[in-house]
Computed example of a mutant assay.
Amino acid sequence: MSQKPAILITGADLAAPAVELLKDFELIYAGKSPQPEEVLALCKKHNPLAILLRYGKVTAEMMDAAPALKVISKHGSGTDTIDKEAATRTGIKVVAAAGANAAAVAEHALASLLACAKSTVHLNERMHSGHWDKATFKTLELNGKTLGLIGLGAIGLRFAKMCNAIGLRVIGFDPYAKNLPDYIQEVDLKTIWQQSDAISLHCPLTTENKDLLNKNTLSLCKDGVIIVNTARGGLINEADLLNAIQSNKVSMAALDSFAAEPMIAGHAFQGNKRIILSPHIGGVTSDAYINMGVGAAKNILSVLLPVATSI
């Protein structure tokens, strides 16, 4: 058995530069799709100093099973899959690789918005079926339209810059944002709902904003609004969104995250041609994989280095 202190990685791999940063530790990999009971067993067996969270959740039970645990580092920006209350109670630090995947997710959000406005998925399917719809079909021009952003962190700001460049008026809501660029008009949530031709979500999921997009907020929106979500599925009440699409309140939705993941066969969104689906892959690029791994590793070292050097 290795004499090095352990770090548990809830995934099957880690970018080589991140592995190099953590070379003084024994890296324990939980596998491609780690189940809670498997992660719990590894916590009990290896008593890691750190958990580098790629997939799944970190629960209070897992923290209790690893008394040496000092830090939980997210391979990405969202920490809603970590029981932060339990971490606070036990003195475990929770850190995230904020901004490491900002370019990747912002690009995916732009692709999703354009796919909705330009009907690229639908028209591609029609063309492959032998149809030529030029005389009977019109797409949406985004130039001059209003985009409402909820969340103006690294991803939201990058997406806003892209959208401003193609002629969209950008309005945004984020109670924590400061010193916004002049191409983003800061507004309240009610204004987002009422004025936006398209709404894109870029905020973390909290107990306060769960089901932020619901039948009440959707009722305030323009008819035919486009919804894009590359953040967290829990921000949207899925049944309410489906009803809004069926009633034409929402013209199109592009979703990269869902209330329960992975999505299982038979989900109500599947087969609906006005909902574009992707498997929470917005931040999954070769560059983001490296950036998130390195960011997560550096965050671990910033907490563990004094501990590690004393062992």
Rank of each mutant, 00 (worst) to 15 (best):
M162T: 00
I245C: 14
F137W: 08
T139I: 10
I7P: 01
T10C: 12
K32F: 09
D24Y: 06
N237W: 04
A253C: 08
P48F: 00
Y289P: 05
D287A: 13
P48C: 03
A65W: 12
D64E: 14
A117V: 02
E85Y: 10
G153Q: 02
N124R: 07
T207Y: 08
G91D: 13
F25L: 11
N237C: 04
K210T: 06
A18T: 07
L22N: 01
T191W: 10
G78Q: 11
A154N: 15
R89I: 08
T59H: 13
I264A: 15
K44Y: 09
I245P: 14
A265H: 11
W193L: 11
G266L: 06
L22D: 02
I245H: 11
I150C: 09
P34E: 03
K210N: 07
T79D: 13
A15V: 05
E61H: 10
S129G: 08
P17I: 02
M252S: 02
A98K: 03
A288K: 04
L40P: 08
V58F: 14
R158V: 01
M252D: 04
I300V: 09
K298M: 07
D64L: 12
Y289V: 01
R274I: 01
K74D: 11
L277G: 10
D197T: 07
F258S: 05
K222S: 06
V228C: 06
K273N: 13
M162E: 01
S257W: 10
F25K: 02
T120C: 06
D287G: 04
D256K: 05
G130C: 03
A65Y: 09
A68N: 15
Q195T: 09
L147F: 09
G293V: 03
T120F: 13
A60E: 14
V58P: 15
V105T: 10
A97F: 10
L113C: 02
A106T: 00
T309R: 13
C221L: 07
A268E: 11
H122C: 07
M62S: 08
G99I: 02
I9W: 11
Y29C: 02
E125N: 05
S310R: 14
I72H: 00
I199L: 11
L149I: 05
E26M: 10
S33F: 13
E20S: 05
V294A: 04
I236W: 04
V95E: 12
A115Q: 03
S129R: 07
A160G: 08
